[in-house]
Design a binder for these strands. Structure first.
Lengths: 178, 178
DNA sequence: CTCTTGTTTCTCTAAATACAGAATTTTCAG
DNA sequence: CTGAAAATTCTGTATTTAGAGAAACAAGAG
């Protein structure tokens, strides 16, 4: 990891590990971490050198990150090469990630469960199965709704809500676990 | 998948797929789905037959699910074998999963970032890096806080909050994205 | 038009992970 | 205690995924 301080290395390595647990390729996560820390956009060649991975690997990983929408292609004046920079606003970044995960995980599951329950009556559906699937559906619909609401709230207000220190729900009389 | 209806198969297969995206082994996820749908606890042998995987595989997967805390070992009267059942309450189940993920992913990251920022002054830390890491820390601390608050709210009240239909935040004057 | 520089795609290898089956250990009935 | 049933652990194989390097392709500059 040529040219990186120990702290930078530490963070990039950890981000790579975390990525793995999220079903995100290690190199992809590392590149993201690198771009996040850098003060200026890097080109693919630079990334290759710093992380010491193959050029092709960088190419594919970058495409993946662009699909997620959390890095951006920029052109520097007088330089023909593509340069890349990460979104800087962390809150915005995770907002995107969360929405993307919703789209890739929650939505398809909702669809499958609904289809399972919509079975044409001829295909007898076992009572227990039906009951369980309905409970599951209920949960996913709740999650979807909360997700949607959360996404409408600005970061600023989210912080305010958090600062209410457990109070947000209390104010609404919604706090105690029953 | 001997003895399962098409609907049951469909759900189990899908759950297996989803698991993969969450960094959870396919068999593990399938066993969980199976136990979730079943009206009674199954023993390892039965699981082996239904899902058609090796006995050892079932053994390991079950341990994993127990670590997550979402399946339970039960003994049936007059049967020496271990039987397993899934938690039935979906909300409770995801509460556990979420907490577990927090413990495994959020907490370690918080620790790493803090350690990165706590660097003894001798190890000069680059200004941009510092700034970015601080932003990241801020976000994770916010997430931690919101998580904690969410966990204190009962499912019942969560549903009520969702039913306020985007109203929860509005009531608090927190809605508009600015 | 063509040469250079940059980028992507393809193919092959290496590494990690999942899994089957055998071997071992544990548990309990008698 | 002993033997049979059950469960776990171990070991080797297969599948999957990551990634390197070569080759093909694209886009200007001159």
């Amino acid at each position: 990891m040529k040219g990186l301080s120990p702290v930078q290395q530490r963070f990039i390595l950890h981000w790579g590990e975390m990525g793995a647990r999220w079903g995100i390729n290690r190199t992809v996560a590392q590149i993201h971490a690198l771009l996040f820390l850098m003060a200026r956009p890097l080109n693919a060649e630079e990334i290759t050198e710093v992380l010491d991975v193959a050029r092709s690997n960088v190419s594919n990983s970058i495409r993946e990150l662009q699909n997620w929408g959390i890095i951006r292609l920029v052109h520097l004046p007088g330089d023909r090469r593509d340069h890349f920079e990460s979104l800087k606003d962390v809150n915005e970044m995770f907002r995107i990630i969360l929405n993307e995960r919703k789209r890739r995980e929650l939505d398809p599951t909702l669809r499958v469960i609904r289809e399972c329950l919509d079975q044409p009556a001829k295909e007898e559906i076992d009572a227990t199965t039906k009951e369980r699937l309905e409970a599951m559906l209920g949960f996913f619909e709740l999650a979807e709704k909360l997700f949607g609401q959360l996404d409408k709230v600005s970061t600023k207000n989210l912080i305010r809500a958090a600062k209410m220190g457990g109070g947000m729900f209390r104010v609404l009389g919604l706090t105690s676990k029953e």
